[in-house]
Structure formats: C-alpha cells, structure tokens
Design a protein around this nucleic acid. Structure first.
Lengths: 234, 234
DNA sequence: GGGACGCTTCGGTCAGGACCGAAGCGTCCG
DNA sequence: CGGACGCTTCGGTCCTGACCGAAGCGTCCC
C-alpha cells in the first residue's frame, strides 16, 4: 500500500472524536474537571454500556485519563495537548456558525453566570476572559499586530505579579474563540497560568457544579490594580 | 436527545480526517501546494472514483478548495486554519512516536534535501527551520520562558527587515514539531510571513517537484547578516 | 446481611460508508 | 476527427462500529 504510515495514525486519532457521543463527552470534559462515567453517559444521552465502550476507547488512546475511587470511575482530559486538540476541532467546526442570537432577557440566571465568567479547560472565558484579554492588550502586555503575542512588557508583568508559567511545548499565548462572546480570549501557557493564579489567590472561586466562576472582592481589587479593569458585580 | 448541538458538528469535522485515505490526502497537501485529483489518488493508493468521493467530501466541508483547469482538478488546503487542524491532529497522533532512527548514511539525496530545508504548509521546516528558530531565540527575538512568544524586539526586527505579517486570528508564533528534527520550529503568522518573505526575496527557492527548498547565495548572506546564522551548503 | 447503586461484559441488531469496475463525459492533442 | 487522458457517476459488495437489554460484579450504606 502506498498509504504513508502517518496517515493511519492521524485517521485513528481523528476517529476518536468522529462520533457524536465521544465528541459530546470530550466537550463536557473541556471544563477541565473530572466527571464520572455515569454523568458523562447522561450528558451524552446514551446508556451506560455504550458510554463504557467509548470511555475505554478514549482512555486507551491517551486522550482521557481515569482514576477509580470506590465504585466510581472519574475521567478527565489527559492534558493541555488533549484539550487543545478538542478545542481546535470545535473551533474549526464552528468557524462559520451564525452570530449568536441577541441575548434574551429571559436567559436563565445560571446561563448568565456562565456567559459572564467561566473556565474553558484551564483558562478564563466568558465576558471576564475577553475583558482581561482586552485590558492586557490596552496595557501593552499583549500585542495583536503580528498575530497574538506576549510582549516583553507582558513577560515582565507576569514575573512582577508572581504568576509563574509552567514550562512546556505550548505557545505562550493563543487566541481561543469565546463561544458566548464570539471574540478571542487568552489561552495557551500564559492563559493557563493566569487562571491558576486567579484561583490560588482567591480572585475567582469556581462554582462546584458548573464551569462558571465568581469574581470575589479581592479579585475585583486585583483586576483594578493590576489591569485597570473595573469589573462590576451586577 | 441530550447531545449538545456542537457535538454533532465536532464529530462531523473529525470524521473528515478519520479515514486513512482522506488523512493521507490532507497530509500530502500539507506542503501547501495544489495537487491534481489523480496525483492524490495515486499518493493515497486508491482508485480514481474513490478519490473523487473523498475529495468531494473534503471540499464540500470547506477543508479543501478546488480550482478546475481544463480536464484537471486542482486541490489545496483551504487556508491556515485547515492546515493547523491537520497539523494538530498529526502531532497528537505522533506525540509518543519512537525517536527517529539515527540518520543513515545511505539516506537518499532527495531525502537529505527534505531533511535539510523544506516547507511545512506555509512555514520553513527541516534543519533550516529549526536553525532559524534557534537563531531567533539566541538574538532575543523569540522567548521560550513562558512558552514560545515573540518579543518586542522580535516585532521590531520584523518591521526593520521588511517582513509584513498578514493580519488574522492566528497566534503570532506557534511551535510546530519538526518531523525530521524532532524539535519545534517556528509556525504561526510570523512563521508564515518569514517563509513568504524568504521566497519573495530569493533567499530560498522551492523545488518544483517536492516540498524541499534550496538556500541561495543571497539567502546565506541574509541569514548571516540578519540572524548571525552560518548556513553551510554541503 | 441485604439492597441500592455504579460500572462492566456479552450477545445480537442495524446503519453508514469505503471500495472498486464499468461506463460516460468533457478536454487536449496529433 | 479520432484517440488518449482525467475525472465523474452508477451500482453492487463488504466490513466496521454504534447501540441497547440483560445479566454479572464490586462497592457503599442502612
């Protein structure tokens, strides 16, 4: 066969996400938390045996990692590379989606919280994520002229603020299309470090039952002092 | 059905690349050039009717663009977003591949050319791509401390050198794992601009029949003057 | 210990799609 | 004008894998 060896490997990887049920599972796990097998089955709308098969396949391929605790099986995305793979696919699939319907006033409260501030795997998203990205651009920490880039001033700011970026192969900054705002927010190694620091420093508190986060008083103070960003709590 | 709407779209996108034949086609097109339907069929090792079906599907989904000329049908990747999608999948599939076999001396000449300098969609790769990336890091144009980033000095250097980066949603710089060197080379909007400028300025000349490029005397001069990089022609 | 619960294995059904050969259509060239 | 060539459509074969119900196994809790 002429088929290059890499083609089979690429196809096998793509096949992992080429099923609506497995795609739904991975999208759910994009919140960065660990879900049980049953939760994922219900979320994806399939029976338990079906979910078991899919989860075995995803974990076996290294896209998910699992952890057994008693009668529960907890699953999460295997790492940033896995999350970025899912995100890349989702963004390409979504690239020419229609503009979001104008925000309706009857939008549920939970929905509003999600749109205002949430996590997207390991970085901040929603109106908060976009506002932070904009503020960093305004203060010269990010530069959009040549594509999204972290400036030297941005690297210094990170050090001065005490935000430490974990080493790795990831790009420092990466635009991630915000599903509610339809504008890019900050992802990549710096986006992850910023989000981690915000949680550790008590600037934001993740809601236990959703990917929404709540900005604390200390968080508003930090956003104002470090980025000149006024975050209203309404 | 509970399945979120986005899951179906993600799965449909992944399914495009979940077939070894379509994967082989897209990998071939990663050289950034336009191929005829017949060439792709032979490359992928399938009969013409089979290739037609696959190409219709890929083009219909917007991953490929086509151009008819007489009795030929030319196809290429639809754009940087499509190329990055294929690359992301390929890199994840390849993430724990064994280290490359030690370079054998009987490596064919063409093979050697490809390993030395080639294009990877729209940026430079091979030993040349890695060397340029390293030189830019040494000169403070790129910064690896917080993940790969373009420094302010790097942005200035681009302007001074006359390299103009096309606007878009791409990250300025992105590491792209080099298949032969097994180390990252420069991709993203800046990587593309650099490669485009290198071709336009006559620094490198693409070989007509492969993705290999040849570094010209002017190219060696430019690499020396602009990056302090000595590129031997052996 | 008994029952509820979470997950897994097994077996059987069914739809989707990858593939090719043969035939057809338009283009190019001698 | 006729033949070679590149691509496409059609029809038929075959295989992969997604799905669920029933039953089984281990864990937790009353």
């Amino acid at each position: 066969m002429d088929t290059p060896t890499g083609a089979r490997a690429l196809a096998d990887t793509a096949a992992l996400l080429a099923d609506p049920t497995r795609a739904a599972i991975c999208l759910a796990l994009l919140d960065g938390r660990a879900w049980t097998a049953g939760e994922l089955a219900r979320r994806a709308g399939v029976a338990a045996p079906t979910a078991t098969g899919h989860l075995n396949r995803l974990a076996g391929a290294g896209l998910l990692t699992e952890e057994r605790q008693g009668r529960h099986r907890y699953l999460r995305l295997a790492g940033p590379a896995a999350a970025e793979l899912v995100e890349t696919l989702a963004q390409f699939a979504d690239r020419d989606a229609p503009a979001p319907p104008a925000r309706s006033l009857r939008t549920a409260r939970q929905q509003g919280e999600l749109a205002r501030a949430r996590t997207c795997y390991d970085h901040l998203a929603g109106a908060l994520g976009v506002a932070v990205t904009d503020a960093m651009t305004t203060r010269g920490l990010l530069d959009h002229r040549n594509g999204l880039a972290l400036t030297t001033a941005g690297a210094d700011w990170l050090g001065a603020t005490g935000i430490t970026v974990r080493p790795g192969r990831r790009p420092a900054v990466r635009p991630c299309l915000d599903f509610t705002e339809r504008r890019p927010h900050l992802a990549g190694a710096v986006g992850a470090a910023l989000c981690r620091h915000a949680v550790d420093a008590g600037w934001v508190v993740p809601r236990p039952d959703s990917r929404a986060v709540r900005v604390t008083a200390a968080g508003r103070e930090a956003l104002r002092g470090l980025l000149g960003l006024e975050w209203s709590c309404d």
